[in-house]
Design a protein around this nucleic acid. Sequence first.
DNA 1: CTGTTAGCGCTTTCAG
DNA 2: CTGAAAGCGCTAACAG
Lengths: 337, 337
Amino acid sequence: MNISIKDIARHCNLNPSTVSRALNNKYGVKPETKKRVMDAARELGYVPSLSARELVKQEGNLIGIIIPESDAEAQPAFFAMLPYINKKLSAYGMETIIYAFDPYRYINGELNKLIQKRRLRGCIIMPGFMKEHKIYEDIRDLNTPSVVMEVTVQSELCSSIHTDEVYGAYQATKHLISNGHSRIGFINGPEYIQICEERREGFEKALHESGILIKSHDIIYSDFSGNGGGAAVLSLLDQAPDLTAVFCANDLMAMGAVSTLAEHGYCIPRDLSIVGFDGMFIGAYYNPPLTTVQNDDVKLGLQAAESLIRIIEEKHTSQEWIKPELIIRKSVQNILS
Amino acid sequence: MNISIKDIARHCNLNPSTVSRALNNKYGVKPETKKRVMDAARELGYVPSLSARELVKQEGNLIGIIIPESDAEAQPAFFAMLPYINKKLSAYGMETIIYAFDPYRYINGELNKLIQKRRLRGCIIMPGFMKEHKIYEDIRDLNTPSVVMEVTVQSELCSSIHTDEVYGAYQATKHLISNGHSRIGFINGPEYIQICEERREGFEKALHESGILIKSHDIIYSDFSGNGGGAAVLSLLDQAPDLTAVFCANDLMAMGAVSTLAEHGYCIPRDLSIVGFDGMFIGAYYNPPLTTVQNDDVKLGLQAAESLIRIIEEKHTSQEWIKPELIIRKSVQNILS
DNA sequence: CTGTTAGCGCTTTCAG
DNA sequence: CTGAAAGCGCTAACAG
């Protein structure tokens, strides 16, 4: 029913293998017969069967995108990157297939099974798994090209792409300091996530450099959610009422903080300066527009795709760090003078 | 190198076909041999090759998710639904593969080619294509199950899921009216998008019902973007300074409006009431928390997946309308009294 | 330059 | 209940 290579062969009085060669631009096919084949293919509406090709070549053009299962709210980065990954990959003839793993039910070997059953050409592991998650062990033993985001995995066929979190947090904190703030709070995300550690490191580094002492109650851990940020800023301010600025480890918590603060009669940035992290596009339309550290999701996504291609084509792995950029908007007040 | 059904057969002294039957729970396989096969499969680490299965069955378990190519900012709905679609589908043993089409370069037949080359089991067309886009013609002639979102396509194997936009816009406008507003502006999205027409219809319906006259300059068309919303609200207010409320056809424009208005010294909702549409989760953390019409993306996504399954399994198509819900937060002021 | 042949891994008759 | 054999659509090795 679906027209196949045989139909073309019959139609052109050729052997299927010749048709195959013609279709795939292989060596030595008379230009004329090639044209005949191409024309017939078009005319008959031939569409190659990828499963057949995959079967015989034992390898396809599918790239698995692996994400932790959760709702959209929790993974802005994934969605920001996906279109770019998808596009770049398709420029190399690859297609993407998305798999969501429940991080709490993951069992070792699952990833590998997935790869085998679809004969995946490679995979990209999105951020969001805990830093010591089992999946990273599996990746170490993979003999399939892979790119891991935000986590470093040492292995033959695995590259990783990171945001330079320390740098980003450092920039944010420096910005606060240079605007006259010295009593700065920090609302961090869950401790068991790698990037949280790094963002904290950057925060502390900036403070140390400026000789500002960090009191332990200036730092609070929350859950990266809007509500979490709102609750956190309140208890932070309760513990340390003299804070003039708060650095939030993501934009969502920053917005949650601003929003609850506003309901409590605060005016941002007049009463408290806020800076976020992530650079969600919506921050530009926030009230006030949110000063934040913007991950370069476009670059991150593109780089992930390119790194994967490099492993596939040249077996060349690498570790890249992409620097995020401080975007100064209106949520920080200059309190010098 | 990859272990196959033959290896199991050899290992168990069986014929590959028996192994196949055992593995697939087919009729008549002695429970004992079945167990032997299962054990061997586990022991040898057998992983079935989907391409082989697809090839012989001429059908796989892949569902194509079709989106218009653009960056994440432009398609919050897609991302909100994706996790639910993905999960529901995988509960039925289906996997999802994402294809982004450039809406301006789409040529007729492309979708069908895609389906053929991967022998897709079905596909879901996400919102975002223009209402008269060629892709919808192609869907009409498809002999593959499909579900279309936000657009109605009449066809044998095609269901569609809609948000009841008219209802949503009606609710929003009613809410404004019941809070005492009668001079209400409307910032709509691009005219060539189907949902914009419907949202406008709901808006006008509510106004008519309450005997409120609509002046033509109370309605302005923008582009669904944050910046667009900001610019639109300014010129709207310029044309009609007596407006006390503005209904925006999406949250992004609503936020853009609030944000630029704030920079111009307005205080929302004191000086102007705003209601959005979409129910982006971030609206809850907006300043002020945004009153909006919330699309039930969870239900929408789940429904899309279920409808597709129903076509696949029972050839049963349907047209569903999902009612969005007015979420009352803090961006509307009651001006009665 | 083109045809022949074999086989990728699996399912599905059809026999036994 | 199990085996034998054919074939899905394609590619690759080897002849010619």
